[in-house]
């Protein structure tokens, strides 16, 4: 009777182990093509004649297939230059860590919230540099870029996941050099005036200290 009970328990444990291994195997076998993108909604203001940058962070926390990401310009005003650095990225899937961790070169440890939790993932930054022409008038301009995540299996692309970012870029006037020089003069004058006043106050204090001595004599 006791032997039969042990055998039953062994059988039950074996069944549980078998079920676990089957579900684990099926979970890992099912390909999951995931790509996340995180970016700032607003693009920094760009001064006339200068350029501005923003970063798109790509990651794959929920996937199990590496993804090859490329970006392209969908639309931008005539004469504008949009560059991507690097031009393409391979994103390797990795689940969340519960604390920040060391990342390699050209990688970023990105903090995200998911389902009420906070986690850190290995993210791959792509810098987008936008350069308006030097004569671009101060105004708001729309720049649209798109990215494509290519999930390659055995060298053949079968599924692509894409996304788009639309930025309103504000070009602001560059401060005129004359105005800058004027400001420098104002600053220097302010400093000089402050120095004179401090010196004068020190002299007055010195005289004030000496006078009573004279009176006592």
């Amino acid at each position: 009777m006791r032997g039969a009970k042990s055998l039953f328990l062994f059988g039950a444990v074996l069944c549980v182990l078998l079920v676990s291994s089957v579900s684990a195997a099926s979970a890992s076998d099912e390909p999951r093509y995931n790509l996340g993108a995180a970016y700032n909604e607003t693009f920094p203001q760009i001064e006339q004649g200068a350029s501005g940058t923003s970063i798109i962070y790509f990651y794959s926390a929920f996937g199990n297939v590496p993804v090859y990401v490329t970006a392209a310009v969908d639309s931008c005003p005539n004469g504008w230059r949009v560059e991507f650095e690097p031009e393409n990225i391979t994103v390797v899937p990795q689940w969340f860590e519960n604390k920040p961790f060391q990342v390699g070169e050209n990688e970023y440890c990105l903090k995200l919230t998911y389902g009420g939790n906070v986690g850190w993932v290995r993210a791959y930054p792509m810098t987008v540099r936008i350069t308006p022409p030097a004569d671009a008038k101060p105004d708001n301009y729309v720049v649209k870029i798109s990215y494509v995540g290519d999930f390659r299996m055995e060298g053949m692309s079968i599924v692509k996941r894409s996304g788009g970012v639309e930025w309103t870029v504000e070009v602001v006037p560059r401060p005129a050099p004359v105005f800058n020089i004027l400001l420098i003069v104002v600053c220097v004058a302010a400093a000089a005036a402050a120095a004179i006043i401090i010196k004068k106050r020190a002299w007055l204090r010195f005289r004030h200290v000496r006078r009573p001595k004279k009176g006592r004599e």
């Binding site: 996340g36 940058t53 929920f62 996937g63 996941r161």
Partner: peptide, 24 residues
């Protein structure tokens, strides 16, 4: 920087939009 005609601005680390899609 403005006076010399050079200079650029860079974004900060914080991100405001996250879009994360999986296909199965």
């Amino acid at each position: 920087a403005g006076a010399t005609g050079e200079g650029s601005t860079t974004s900060t680390f914080s991100v405001s939009v996250v879009i994360d899609i999986s296909l199965s």
